[in-house]
Design a protein around this nucleic acid. Structure first.
Length: 255
DNA sequence: ATGGCCGAATCTTTCGGA
């Protein structure tokens, strides 16, 4: 089974790229982030006509997550259950597919760091950590895949000096990532690739792709049952070189 | 070809992203 995550930055602009990729790479389950549309505007039939199952948590204009699967989807949660806010943002979808629990996750960005946005990011992650703790009750692989907006360590960005004061890399945020891991989750990419420097995001600005100025912020976290079964984890950077690409590339793990 | 983003909605400008 291949489980993937891709911040697509508008599903309607890139639905053909998504379908083409999951077919050519033989992806079984794909979590999407930043679909940037309400559920009614998600191109569901484009995927269901090709025999995929689709679940969507939409929002107008920005955010939004979805899951596309070769196999039937049982929805477990349409948000983080213990995260209460006045207007819920579409950032979390948790499902069961076959004998796997899988989530598509879009963690808030948090910039600028001297603002309510960072506080929101921290409180969102804290609620997520509490929830992830509860997910450890499942005696099967739990796969928490998404755009975490966290650069876990110095080796996960092209230049630590550029990023060290950013909401993606400040110590408080890196600490949260370690907190999740310390619950008993593994960073799939790092589990498989001990020292590799690879990126999943290159900014549209400043010619970042051409200069290879990237960062690794899209992650697939797995519990110990997942770690027992994992065979490989790869970032497919080729997608960033397409015409009209998303600024993120997909990451996938094979079980 | 050395020169700097992109997407959606509020739409010839603003906001959010990272």
């Amino acid at each position: 089974m291949k489980f993937a995550s891709w911040n697509i930055n508008s599903i309607n602009l890139r639905k053909e790229a998504v379908l083409n990729w999951i077919i050519t790479q033989d992806i079984d389950v794909l979590g999407l982030q930043e679909i940037k549309c309400e559920e009614a505007n998600f191109p569901k039939s484009f995927f269901t006509d090709n025999n995929y199952f689709v679940e969507v948590i939409g929002q107008k204009g920005y955010n939004g997550v979805a899951i596309i699967s070769k196999y039937p989807i049982e929805v477990l949660n349409r948000n983080i259950p213990n995260f209460i806010e006045e207007i819920s943002q579409a950032r979390y979808l948790e499902v069961k597919i076959k004998n796997y629990v899988f989530s598509s996750i879009y963690v808030p960005n948090g910039n600028p760091i001297n603002s309510e946005k960072l506080k929101y990011k921290l409180s969102w992650i804290e609620a997520f950590i509490e929830h992830a703790k509860g997910l450890l009750k499942f005696e099967m692989p739990v796969i928490l895949a998404g755009d975490y907006n966290i650069i876990p360590e110095e080796i996960d960005c092209w230049d630590e000096q550029v990023w060290k004061n950013d909401a993606l890399a400040i110590p408080d945020i890196r600490f949260k990532f370690r907190e999740i891991k310390n619950l008993g989750y593994f960073d799939s990419f790092r589990l498989i690739n001990k020292n590799k420097c690879e990126w999943s995001f290159w900014d549209y600005q400043n010619g970042s792709w051409n200069k290879d100025h990237g960062i690794r912020i899209d992650h697939i976290l797995i519990n110990s049952y997942g770690a027992d079964e994992i065979k490989d984890c790869k970032i497919d950077k080729s997608l960033r070189g397409l015409n009209k690409p998303s600024d993120h590339t997909p990451i996938f793990a094979t079980f």
